[in-house]
């Protein structure tokens, strides 16, 4: 690093402080003026997610029936006050099973987003920070992964690992690594040219310290957006795989699985299909709406860009 560059950076240091203050876009007192009125989709999305989280926590304990309890005298009951979502071929209460499924879905969604985000973040971070060979190799690898639908990658992994909840989480998580890696990479490429990184380097921060102490805190907002939208995608893919019999195994009350086991009784008891499907849609929709709104809030220029 030559002298002139150092001078420039020292000159810039005053600027950085100012920039940081200006870029603290979000203040708590703005929550009404900026979020709820200007961005109703985010308000609705956050309320829906909040309710879903509550259900995931207390759902199983407020469920009217045990989700596994068999009751052969009450098979195929259509929705009524006793069983508001009806009962299945073994007399199990669908409402209780769907409620219980909220927790299962959150578990799968959070764990697989965790896997995808952790590895994707590392790959994107190293690729974006390093110049040259490593960057090329990593991003070429991500490009290759991108040529396949996530569902297919997850399916191939589950097929060989064997179907179970744990393997479903691993497969859906691995299949989403490319997504987080690419977003992280894109953001890091922009951030790494900002003066605060040069400043960190001057005061002696090594590559790892620059990446983990300085870069990561600055790329958190876009990562929250992609993780929210990624959660929606993970739930959808996991439900699809469970529906095909490649994910969660019976008798766990997972929404895709409840739906698929109702397929044989599609005429006799359509409620076995309707309610778990609605549950999947509401959950995915909440996260999509919230993610869209959050993106608009953090980056007004990118409004509704897909």
């Amino acid at each position: 690093m030559n002298k002139r560059k150092i001078d420039n950076i020292i000159e810039d240091l005053g600027q950085i402080e100012f920039d940081e203050r200006a870029s603290a876009k979000f203040k708590f007192k703005d929550i009404f003026s900026k979020v709820i009125f200007k961005n109703p989709s985010m308000a609705i999305g956050s309320i829906m997610i909040f309710l879903l989280i509550i259900l995931a926590i207390i759902g199983p304990s407020i469920a009217p029936y045990d989700s596994q309890e068999l009751n052969m005298s009450e098979r195929f009951e259509s929705p009524s006050w006793n069983h508001i979502f009806g009962t299945d071929n073994m007399g199990r209460d669908i409402f209780s099973r769907v409620l219980h499924g909220t927790r299962v879905t959150f578990k799968i969604g959070l764990a697989s987003v965790g896997i995808g985000l952790a590895f994707g973040l590392l790959i994107g971070l190293f690729a974006g920070y390093s110049r040259g060979k490593l960057q090329n190799v990593l991003m070429r690898f991500i490009d290759i992964l991108y040529s396949f639908p996530a569902l297919l990658i997850a399916m191939a992994l589950v097929a060989f690992l064997g179907p179970s909840t744990r393997n479903l989480i691993i497969a859906v998580g691995i299949a989403s690594i490319r997504y987080y890696a690419r977003v992280t990479y894109g953001v890091v490429l922009v951030e790494r040219n900002k003066p605060y990184l040069d400043a960190a380097e001057i005061v002696g921060a090594g590559a790892l310290r620059q990446m983990f102490r300085h870069l990561i805190p600055n790329i958190v907002p876009p990562l929250i957006v992609v993780a929210t939208l990624g959660f929606a995608g993970a739930v959808l893919n996991a439900a699809g795989l469970s529906f095909l019999g490649l994910g969660v195994q019976p008798p766990t009350p997972e929404w895709g699985l409840i739906l698929s086991s109702g397929r044989n009784y599609i005429i006799r008891a359509p409620w076995l299909l309707i309610f778990p499907g609605l549950a999947i849609m509401v959950a995915v929709l909440s996260f999509n709406i919230f993610g869209d709104g959050l993106r608009d809030l953090l980056d007004p220029k990118q409004q509704r860009k897909v």
Binding site: A232, L236, A239, G240, F243, G256, L259, S260, R263, I266, I267, P270, L273, I274, G277, I280, M281, V284, L285, N288, I289, D292
Partner: peptide, 17 residues
């Protein structure tokens, strides 16, 4: 947004019914 949030198998089965 509803369309991207809808499980494809659910829509298919509902249309089938």
């Amino acid at each position: 947004t509803l369309g991207i949030s809808m499980p494809v198998f659910w829509l298919g089965l509902m249309l089938l019914v």
